[in-house]
Simulated assay, not measured.
Amino acid sequence: MEFCANKLSFRGYNIGTRLVDEFLAKSNVSRCVDFKETADVIAKLGFKMFLGVTATVTNWDAEGTSCSFVLEDNPLVDFVELPDTCQGLQYCNVLSGVIRGALEMVSMKTEVTWVRDMLRGDDAYEMRVKLTKQVPEEYPYKDDD
């Protein structure tokens, strides 16, 4: 099951690295100043643009480097029912990969884990996003004045 979950996350990561360009082109969002603002933009605009739902950003840590995205609805699972033999499968890992891939493209290395999943009987979908490293932007050329 873990192999499948990792594959889903990897596929999601690849999707996220490509979706960020489309998001930036269509949303007209200016550069976010910090991780908190970035999380808010993802929750309100990113989820709405690509999934048709919004997420709530909660449970911030004191440093402002870790939060939870809570979704009350997840269209990826509308017609999914996991059999008993697949209860260990992290079906929604594709979303955690998308978040990780998109954030990496804007210079933020993150860890994304699922905390709650309605497919497993929880009352909502909740993923925990932790900023592990803010990567300084590198430009491919040197600006000679």
Rank of each mutant, 00 (worst) to 15 (best):
E2F: 09
F3Y: 11
A5W: 00
N6F: 13
R11H: 08
G12S: 07
G16Y: 07
G16P: 10
T17D: 05
T17W: 06
L19D: 01
V20F: 11
E22S: 02
F23E: 01
L24K: 13
S27F: 01
N28E: 08
S30F: 10
C32R: 12
F35I: 05
K36F: 03
E37V: 03
I42W: 09
L45E: 13
L45Y: 06
G46Q: 07
V53Q: 05
T54N: 08
A55T: 05
T58I: 06
W60C: 07
W60R: 05
E63D: 14
T65V: 08
C67I: 11
C67L: 12
L71Y: 05
E72D: 10
D73C: 07
P75R: 00
P75Q: 02
L82R: 07
P83F: 03
T85V: 11
T85L: 09
C86Q: 13
Q87V: 09
Y91C: 08
N93A: 02
V94N: 02
I99E: 03
I99K: 01
A102H: 09
M105A: 07
M105K: 15
M105I: 00
M108C: 06
T110I: 00
V115I: 13
R116N: 06
L119S: 00
D123W: 00
D123P: 04
D123A: 15
D123G: 07
A124Q: 12
A124V: 13
Q134S: 15
P136D: 08
Y139L: 14
Y139M: 13
P140N: 08
D145M: 12
